[in-house]
């Protein structure tokens, strides 16, 4: 089943956005405005609920006209695209795993989810969990082909591994040329401390460096 790749699951939802000419601003614009201010860091709904590697929300205004002789055609609704790459081990394949994920999201961030999806036609709200799950799955589209660079590690494992990598690099750099007994003693203390360290929170930005970031194309 192409939604699944190893223990990672590719979720694709297309939810129709309410098409109400009386609404001002229109519902698609309200979603855009809300998403523009939704935190992407540790306060993100996807960070509060575990198991999301990467996710995006996109207001799809229409299909694209690529120019004659192709035909110009248009959608009747705009759609909210929810695309997520999530942990879903093979033993949970099928609806159980997906239900668990969506329910986790609904319980962790009901206000944010409702604020976004309440602009979608027929959205029942997170309060009625069964209806919520039914709605989301009704909007799901099967992936045709799913590629994952790493498909056998959970979000937690990855966050832990990144922590380990950083700590190990520090340890190696600060223990060059130590005599074996001291090295071993230090390593054992180090590994104990590292293993006991809490797993870092997801979506924490990199330590501040004096270089700016921003989006810009050539």
């Amino acid at each position: 089943m192409p939604n699944q790749n190893g223990s990672v699951y590719g979720l694709t939802l297309l939810c129709p956005i309410i098409n109400d000419h009386r609404a001002s601003p229109s519902h698609d614009l309200q979603i855009r405005a809300y998403l523009a201010t939704l935190p992407t860091g540790p306060d993100s709904p996807f960070a509060i609920a575990p198991h999301t590697h990467l996710a995006r929300l996109v207001v799809m205004d229409d299909v694209v006209f690529v120019g004659a002789p192709a035909r110009e055609e248009h959608l009747k609704s705009k759609y909210l695209v929810f695309e997520a790459n999530i942990d879903c081990p093979p033993h949970a394949i099928g609806t159980t795993g997906l239900d668990t994920y969506l329910a986790g999201l609904a319980m962790a961030a009901p206000q944010q989810l409702d604020a976004i999806w309440s602009h979608c036609t027929g959205y029942p709200g997170t309060a009625n969990l069964q209806a919520f799950l039914h709605y989301m799955k009704a909007c799901q589209i099967e992936t045709t082909f799913f590629f994952a660079a790493t498909n056998d590690k959970s979000v937690t494992q990855t966050l832990k591994a990144l922590q380990t990598q950083r700590a190990v690099a520090d340890f190696i750099a600060t223990h060059q040329g130590k005599d074996p007994a001291e090295l071993q003693r230090d390593f054992l203390a180090f590994s104990q401390k590292l293993i006991a360290a809490p797993t870092p929170k997801p979506a924490v930005p990199a330590p501040q460096r004096p270089m700016q970031t921003g989006g810009r194309n050539e």
Binding site: T40, A55, G67, K153, A161
Partner: peptide, 29 residues
């Protein structure tokens, strides 16, 4: 460029790591 459409909200659990960084980290682990 013509067929691309923009993302409104983008989340990653590990914004400071690339696919290569993640693979490296798992090997170190």
């Amino acid at each position: 460029t013509r067929v691309q459409f923009d993302t409104d909200y983008y989340y990653t659990a590990y914004p400071h790591a690339t696919a290569n960084d993640v693979k490296n980290a798992h090997i170190v682990q």
